[in-house]
Write a protein that binds this DNA or RNA. Structure first.
Length: 569
DNA sequence: AGTAAAATAAACAGTA
DNA sequence: CTACTGTTTATTTTAC
């Protein structure tokens, strides 16, 4: 090795945490404080209140701050789900450590842990009231007593830390009320205890009827929300900028960050497909322009799998279930494209993916090269690894080389087909499936599910669940775990489905070129079997020449039953 | 510790 | 001869 593994040095086991929880909370507390003050002033200026009302107002504000906090925590959660904010291992020292080993490498880079993030966060702060206070206070040790500190819950726990209480408002049961939770009225400033919903409703109607006070409180609440939205927009914007910045310079510590917009599911497939399809062949992105930060990237949320990159040298770790490659790739397509992270897939699976992504299911060697460099910033940046062993530093357009060629030649699953223009490479799906014995690791659940041949959705879910479970506990939040559905729309998604457990049926006709059989006119070279024991399969012919025409779209051969009982290994 | 698979490196042959 | 493509062998790493 020793080639240009630029940013991915080996072994630097300390994950750099961007925003440790405590800091974030402090930060948000500060924001709340500011907001609190500001709102207070607004209120007072706007319309003078009787003293008592003011006291009441303060209570109301506190309540609102709680809500605001809740929003913020949700935001934080979102960030965490996206992997933008790693969970401070420091606090959850133990089990959390299942974080992908490569994570450190992603973060590793330059020195001071947490520095950049902290800087960027504190530099702006909440500008409701002039940033100075906010900025400094954030940087300052958390001794600043939050305005809410006196607002403690019965158990003495600062309200700040008990989002649980508020969160109930989101998970209401049919018979509940947004303003009623945990037996008390959640109207800003009102914590009246109500035995049941009925009583609460009564209370609501009497105490919080339509009057000046209620409307004023409502207005304040609106402002709170508004401010939060503004703040959110700002933070999002900043995040985008950070992303852009980092993508532009992959040599920087590379968080697996993604712009906001965790568009769940829906747009994923579109983005991916279009991106994959839209690239003209042979187009190689200039390394420098790699950034496409504006597009809604999706988090490599799946966590570990996607982060298995880099490493001291090579690591194909997840290739055991490397079948999810296309979905994983689909989901994190943008990520790999921009982040200098080694994709956790084997060359073979990547090559296959490249080939299968094309309508014809065939690629020339050069096109495969291009696919690699196009799809993976990593391969763009580590061209040294790719260059032919020979020497030529000069020969410009030589990127992926030896490894790809080697793999193409080595694996029986890659079949060379000659057409008029030259030779193209295709995939013999059957061979590809064979070459991976169903030994897989991962969570027992995952394995079980795979073996029992659950639907892709289930499989994918459990896969993700397993990953999330082991790596990113917070990923378990409902929102983020469903990309499976999206990816299942992808033309290639079926490949993963079948891959892990269900080798494709012998028809394996693994997609004869759907469009242009003519090209296969010439000879098909069948690879020599090292082990002569396999006479029953004819990879080559099954592929190209034979059964041309119709062979429906790939989707057809989806989950064909029957697996070739025979092993091979 | 042993093994299989993959990554990596490199030599070499064929062809345009 | 050079560049590219393709095959093969050897070694090292990694995961199991």
């Amino acid at each position: 090795m020793g080639q240009g593994w630029g940013c991915c040095g080996d072994s630097s086991p300390l994950p750099v945490v961007i925003l440790p929880h405590p800091q974030l909370q402090e930060y948000y507390k500060k924001q709340q404080e500011q907001l609190h003050l500001q709102l207070l002033t607004q209120q007072q200026a706007g319309k003078p209140q009787p003293k008592e009302a003011l006291g009441n107002k303060q209570l109301a504000f506190q309540q609102q701050l709680l809500q605001m906090q809740q929003l913020q925590q949700q935001h934080l959660l979102n960030l965490q789900r996206q992997g933008l904010v790693s969970l401070q291992p420091s606090q959850a020292s133990g089990p959390l450590q299942t974080l992908p080993q490569d994570l450190p490498q992603l973060w590793k880079g330059e020195g001071a842990p947490g520095q950049p993030a902290e800087d960027s966060v504190k530099q702006e702060g909440l500008d409701l009231t002039g940033t100075a206070a906010t900025a400094t206070s954030f940087a300052a040790p958390p001794k600043v007593s939050p305005p809410l500190s006196h607002h403690t819950l019965p158990n003495g726990q600062p309200a700040v830390l008990t989002s649980r209480r508020d969160s109930s408002s989101h998970e209401e049961t049919p018979g509940s009320h947004p303003l009623y939770g945990h037996g008390e009225c959640k109207w800003p400033g009102c914590e009246t205890l109500c035995e049941d919903l009925g009583q609460f409703i009564k209370h609501l109607n009497t105490e919080h009827a339509l009057d000046d006070r209620s409307t004023a409180q409502c207005r304040v609440q609106m402002q709170v929300v508004q401010q939060l939205e503004i703040q959110l927009a700002k933070e999002s914007e900043r995040l985008q900028a950070m992303m852009a910045h980092l993508h532009m310079r992959p040599s920087e510590p590379k968080p697996f960050s993604q712009p906001l917009n965790p568009v769940p599911g829906s747009s994923f497939s579109k983005v991916t497909v279009s991106a994959a399809d839209s690239f003209p062949d042979g187009l190689v992105h200039p390394p420098t322009s790699a950034a496409a930060p504006v597009t809604p990237l999706r988090p490599p949320g799946l966590g570990s799998a996607s982060l298995h990159g880099g490493g001291p040298a090579r690591r194909r770790s997840s290739d055991k279930f490397c079948s999810p490659i296309s979905s994983e790739l689909a989901q994190n397509h943008e990520f790999y494209k921009n982040a200098d992270v080694r994709p956790p897939f084997t060359y073979a699976s990547l090559i296959r993916q490249a080939i299968l992504e094309t309508p014809d299911r065939q690629l020339t060697l050069n096109e495969i090269y291009n696919w690699f460099t196009r799809m993976f910033a990593y391969f763009r940046r580590n061209t040294a690894t790719w260059k032919p062993s020979k020497l030529l530093l000069s020969s410009s357009s030589l990127y992926p080389q030896n490894a790809v060629r080697h793999n193409l030649s080595l694996h029986k699953c890659f079949v060379r087909v000659e057409n008029v223009k030259g030779a193209v490479w295709t995939v013999d799906e059957r061979e590809y499936q064979k070459r991976r014995p169903p030994k897989m690791t991962g969570s027992p659940t995952l394995v079980k599910n795979m073996i029992s041949g659950l639907s892709y959705g289930a499989l994918n879910a459990s896969y993700q669940a397993a990953l999330a479970e082991s790596s990113f506990p917070l990923l378990n939040s409902p929102g983020m775990l469903n990309p499976g559905s999206a990816s299942s729309l992808l033309p290639l998604s079926h490949d993963d489905v079948g891959a892990p457990l269900e080798p494709l049926s012998s028809n394996g006709s693994s997609s004869p070129p759907r469009l242009s059989p003519p090209q296969y006119s010439h000879q098909v070279q069948v690879k020599e079997e090292p082990a002569e024991a396999e006479e029953d399969r004819q990879p080559g012919p099954s592929l190209g020449a034979s059964n041309p025409s119709t062979s429906g779209p790939p989707e057809d051969r989806d989950l064909e039953e029957e697996l070739p009982g025979e092993e091979l290994s």
